[in-house]
Write a protein that binds this DNA or RNA. Structure first.
Length: 164
DNA sequence: GCCAACGTTGGC
DNA sequence: GCCAACGTTGGC
């Protein structure tokens, strides 16, 4: 018997790497590199499992918004960009023998027809407890409750229908 | 561009 | 181990 699927949210700055960039990748799959926060690292390394589902969020965007979903297709492995002096995420403290930073591979599931902006999510009572909406929340990889994930998907499909 | 909130670093 | 200084995140 397999473990229950878990749900997550990952942030990305669309000017750096957007969900449209993900859609253009071979197999619409990418390694989610560059996470340099220990709490987020621990989620990537210890808790994300194959088939877990992920909300993709555009931060530092206008407007900031949840823009689609992805699925975990490879579990945690060392983030080799930490070993590359030319990488923006280079960290000399991380070595192949003793890696400090980890990543997973994500494959695009769907790009929402209509993004769900942050300020609208704040209006949804069912999402009140979401980590994303907490004041001062900065975690770039964070757990999402199953009900929250379902609520977001429902909002996205409702919005798509309304827009047509 | 501002700045509040947060995480990390390093002197002590 | 404390905590001030500093750097980063990310909404606005």
């Amino acid at each position: 018997m397999g473990r229950d699927i878990r749900y997550w949210l990952v942030k990305t700055e669309p000017e750096v790497y957007s969900i449209e960039d993900l859609a253009r990748e071979p197999d619409q799959t990418t390694c989610w590199d560059g996470v340099r926060n220990y709490q987020a690292r621990n989620f990537l390394r210890d808790q994300m499992r194959l088939q877990d589902r992920v909300l993709v969020y555009h931060s530092n965007a206008r407007p900031p918004a949840v823009v689609g979903t992805a699925v975990v297709v490879r579990e945690g492995y060392p983030d080799h960009t930490a070993w590359d002096p030319k990488s923006a995420h280079y960290d000399p403290a991380s070595t192949p023998d003793n890696p400090r930073w980890w990543m997973v591979d994500l494959r695009l599931e769907q790009v929402f027809e209509q993004p769900l902006p942050l300020d609208e999510l704040r209006q949804v009572p069912a999402l009140k407890e979401m980590e994303l909406l907490r004041k001062g929340s900065r975690l770039s990889v964070q757990p999402v409750r199953p009900e929250e994930f379902k609520t977001i998907l429902k909002l996205a499909s409702q919005r798509a229908r309304t827009a047509r």
